[in-house]
Computed example of a mutant assay.
Amino acid sequence: MSNDVSLVALRLFVRVAATGSFAAAARQHGLPASSVSRHIAALEKALGQRLLYRHTRAVRLTEVGEQYYQTVREVLDTLDIATEQVQGAATEPRGLLRINAPVAFGRLHVAPRLAAFQARYPDIETELTLTDAFIDPVQEGVDIVLRVGVLRDSSLVARKLADQHFVACASPAYIAEHGRPRTPEELRLHNCLVYKGSRGVQRWYFRDPNSHLFRSHEVRGNLRSNNAESLREAALQGQGIILFPTWLIHDDISGQRLTSVLEEWEASGEPEPQGIHAIFPENRLRSSKVAAFLTHLQQAIGEVPYWDG
């Protein structure tokens, strides 16, 4: 097996190991699944070791395969970064940049920034995936993962792009009909439209200016959804009160389609401050295309985010 073929086989092996699927690796590399299987079989023959257990519904690593995968993945990442740096020494950043972001945030604040970014860096090809489920950028082969909310402990590098602020609000029509809550306790008298995601029902937290602690307040209403924009639309129709980040509803508030309530209290969807972060593997710190995109996005958001301005 030639060195070129070996490199292709190694890349395919890493994708199969990360996704647990020959078909997924084939789709990512634009190859038929049978071709991926042949490359992996040739690699195992050359090594004299079985790397994968093949089952009808899944593929998993052998003990030897797990050790080999960890080493090969690091080597390929290092090779890709080294190649990018050599190419970038004489040219602008180039190559494929894979970005993952939450659905609503990506649609509202990432996708609209890509045209200007790619006009500035025409040699960068961008692949944007939107999902509200957290993904591991190492396993999925993603360069940058954008996440909103509380940042969990991780071995990944995180760069804070902005704080995340929440606002409770309703349409002027709802307030005219049902009145304005004067305290968080009075929310129990109102129809609250609540987000329910993979972690369950989102709780509503408030703290007054004289306190450092957020308190949870029980709310209920006639609509729950795992899609924030559906709840926002219901609020615009006068159905009830919502609690969402300013990046989602700032246009509606500035356009007076929604009116904030309980302004004297600081609101939150968690009992602790939240942020918007870019998360990536440590070796991506040396990637010029990653650095270029983060700089572009940070400049677009601003030191004070435009949705909080």
Rank of each mutant, 00 (worst) to 15 (best):
R57A: 13
A235S: 13
L108I: 10
A278T: 05
G269D: 00
L43E: 03
P305C: 01
H217E: 12
V304P: 03
H178V: 09
V72C: 00
H296F: 04
L223G: 10
L114C: 02
N283H: 15
H212V: 15
E63I: 09
A101R: 11
H165E: 15
V145C: 10
L76M: 05
A33K: 11
T259P: 07
N100R: 15
F13P: 00
G30C: 03
F22W: 09
A133M: 09
R232H: 13
A267D: 02
W247A: 01
L156G: 05
V86A: 04
S211K: 04
L146R: 05
V14H: 06
V103L: 04
A291D: 07
Q28T: 11
L151H: 10
V110T: 08
Q299K: 12
K289G: 07
L258R: 03
E218R: 15
Q239S: 14
G309F: 15
L248E: 10
L297S: 03
L161Y: 08
A90D: 14
A176R: 08
P209R: 00
A25L: 01
E66A: 13
G141D: 01
D143C: 04
E63H: 10
N3H: 14
A25S: 05
R38W: 12
S35V: 12
A111C: 14
D4L: 09
S198E: 10
G48Q: 01
V219G: 00
A228Q: 14
W247N: 04
Y53C: 14
K196G: 12
L231F: 05
G309E: 13
Q85S: 12
L130M: 08
L223F: 09
S34F: 09
L10V: 02
D208A: 13
I135L: 08
K196V: 14
I144S: 06
A23P: 12
L31E: 01
A33V: 11
S154H: 06
F105W: 06
V5I: 10
P305W: 00
A292Q: 03
K160A: 00
Q87C: 12
E186C: 09
D251R: 12
Y195N: 04
Q67M: 15
P137L: 04
L43H: 03
L161K: 02
P137M: 03
R98C: 01
W204Q: 09
I175N: 03
V75M: 10
E266I: 07
G179D: 00
D123F: 09
H109S: 00
S155Q: 15
L61Y: 11
R152C: 10
A158H: 07
M1L: 03
D132P: 01
F206A: 00
A26C: 00
S260C: 08
F280I: 05
L10C: 05
V219Y: 02
S216V: 13
A235K: 12
